[in-house]
């Protein structure tokens, strides 16, 4: 239990995907203009990241490792698994949970080439693959879900700040994306306070 708590704290605060690892910067800048959109995107990422970490670990351990394909087919198989999963989730959600689909549907196509998702599946796959199958699956899924939560936290904070920045009297060349990066620098410094806790 303790190691999962450490993993959670690490992925959400210390090694935050956006502010510390530089993964998923495109949606962090692109989908952070409104808080609703940020939450919707965040939820979709948590869901897809957890699911794809689970499935990629399954494939890695049962197919790629035993047949010696891991060193050169991992990128290819992981990105295809993620793309297929996103498509699958979209279809299932539209049929079974139309309300949820209306809320998250537009964010799903944006996720298949989100580098945070591919990054989370690659991040510790070699380390966790040494564990027995159930534990490896559980740990990798936890990593994906907690990483997604950290992403959502950063995205939501950013969106809250940017809603106010809209009205700030800024020099013209800094408006829009440049000031978003400068704000992110401030947030990143704040998150550095967590370094060393885990």
């Amino acid at each position: 239990m303790k190691e999962y708590f450490v993993l959670m704290f690490g992925m959400v605060f210390v090694q935050n995907f956006v502010l510390n690892q530089f993964l998923g910067i495109c949606p962090f800048i692109g989908v952070s203009k409104k808080r609703d959109a940020a939450l919707g995107m965040g939820m979709a990422v948590v869901f897809v990241m957890g699911l794809s970490c689970f499935v990629t670990m399954l494939v890695y351990k049962l197919l790629l490792l035993p047949y010696g394909l891991a060193s050169y087919l991992d990128i290819m198989s992981f990105i295809l698994i993620i793309a297929a999963l996103v498509q699958f989730v979209e279809i299932v959600m539209r049929k079974l949970a139309p309300d949820l689909y209306r809320a998250l549907g537009i964010y799903l196509p944006l996720i298949s080439t989100n580098c945070a998702v591919l990054g989370s599946t690659q991040m510790r796959v070699i380390e966790f693959a040494g564990l027995p199958l159930p534990e490896a699956l559980l740990k990798n899924t936890a990593l994906g879900v907690f990483g997604g939560i950290g992403f959502t936290l950063a995205l939501f904070l950013m969106a809250s700040l940017r809603e106010r920045l809209e009205f700030a009297p800024l020099p013209q060349p800094l408006r829009g994306i440049p000031i978003a990066f400068l704000t992110a620098a401030g947030m990143s410094i704040a998150f550095f306070a967590f370094t060393g806790i885990v």
């Binding site: 530089f22 978003a180 990066f181 400068l182 620098a185 990143s188």
Partner: peptide
């Protein structure tokens, strides 16, 4: 990390 955001933004 913060230096990356700072440099790129400026």
């Amino acid at each position: 990390a913060p230096g990356g955001f700072l440099t790129l933004g400026l």
